Computed example of a mutant assay.
Amino acid sequence: MVMVDGSLDAEKIAGYFKGKSILITGATGFLGKILVEKILRVQPDVRRIYLLVRAMDAHSAKQRVEAEVTDTELFCLLKEKHGKGGFELFVEEKVVPLAGDVVFENMGLDAPRLEELANEVDIIVNGAATTNFYERYDIALDVNVMGVKYLCQFAKKCANLKMLLHVSTAFAAGDREGLIMERPFKKGETLREGTYLDIDAELRLAGDVKKELERQDGGGGGDKTKRERKGMKELGLERSRHFGWSNTYVFTKAMGEMLLGQLHGAIPVVILRPSIITSILRDPLPGWMQGTRT
């Protein structure tokens, strides 16, 4: 990072993105779409921004990116600058929607597209996450842990990768008091003395409990779904608290960090741990935020 008078040098950061291709996951989320808008606004010479979104096909992915990202009021300054037609052309040239999901190996992309990305991507920003504090354990593990694993596997195939930026949370540190140092999690580290976290064992446990709940319910219809959901949510909270975390979200985000630390090898990695995020201060739309939960 370049510091000028105690602040980041915005011009040099913007310059860094010139000619770069960036893969962003979680772009339909609050932070993701802010990042997309900011890069397009301060560095129009970015080469490509690939947005991985959950969708059935390329057409659906394009529709979703338009509806949930580029057509939102957040892009007002860019629309003013380029005009309606110019803005659409600009976005079409710079933004590439990808139908996929981090919960699948190779992000659910076909081999030709994966090879194209591996040859072109310079930066990966992983913002994909389930942020529900009391998510089902199996779903939280899929997105917040396995998603990190699959993205890291892809990163190792990228010939020109400069950085993998992983968005975590400050609350992965748990409900501790006093000075908490910013350092990576060690393999097996927990917040409760006398326990050891085996991520593979947790993945197996979640799978086994889910199968057992399905077996017990048989053909239970809607009630079966509710019981299974309740059982998997309770399992997530139980395992989180067993190891010293307060909820499933912060626990699985800590696990994702831990897994990234084990797997990244020579890949340059940055882990970002934001705390509470509120509305935009100034550009492009003062006070903008996405929903009351944010």
Rank of each mutant, 00 (worst) to 15 (best):
I34M: 11
R47P: 00
F17A: 08
L52Y: 02
A14T: 00
L8E: 10
Y16H: 11
E11Q: 11
R54L: 15
R47C: 08
K33I: 12
G32P: 02
G32W: 09
P44C: 06
V42T: 15
F17V: 05
M3E: 14
G6F: 09
K33C: 09
L35K: 00
P44S: 05
V4S: 13
L52S: 05
E11Y: 00
L23H: 05
V53D: 08
L51E: 09
V53A: 06
L8G: 03
G19L: 04
V42E: 14
V46T: 06
Y16V: 03
Q43H: 01
E11T: 05
I24L: 15
T28D: 10
L8D: 02
G32Q: 11
V2K: 15
I39Q: 00
G26R: 11
I22M: 03
I13C: 08
K18R: 14
R48E: 13
M1L: 07
D45Q: 14
G6M: 14
R41C: 03
F17T: 00
R41S: 07
R48Y: 11
D9Y: 01
S21L: 01
I49M: 12
G26E: 10
V36T: 09
I24P: 13
K38I: 12
F30A: 12
D45G: 00
F30G: 01
D9N: 13
D9L: 02
E11W: 00
E37W: 02
G29Y: 09
V4P: 03
L31P: 10
T25I: 03
K12V: 02
S21D: 07
M1Y: 12
R54V: 13
K20V: 01
V2I: 15
G6T: 12
V42P: 05
V46S: 06
I22E: 05
V4F: 07
L52H: 01
V4G: 04
R47W: 03
D45F: 10
V36G: 06
G15V: 04
E37M: 01
D5W: 10
G15K: 03
L23R: 03
L23G: 08
F17I: 03
L31H: 09
S7H: 15
E11C: 01
P44E: 13
D45A: 07
L8Q: 08
K38G: 02
I13H: 00
Y50H: 12
A10D: 12
K18A: 15
I34L: 14
K20F: 05
F30Q: 08
R41H: 14
G26C: 12
V36Y: 06
G32T: 02
V42C: 07
L23N: 06
L8T: 11
I39W: 01
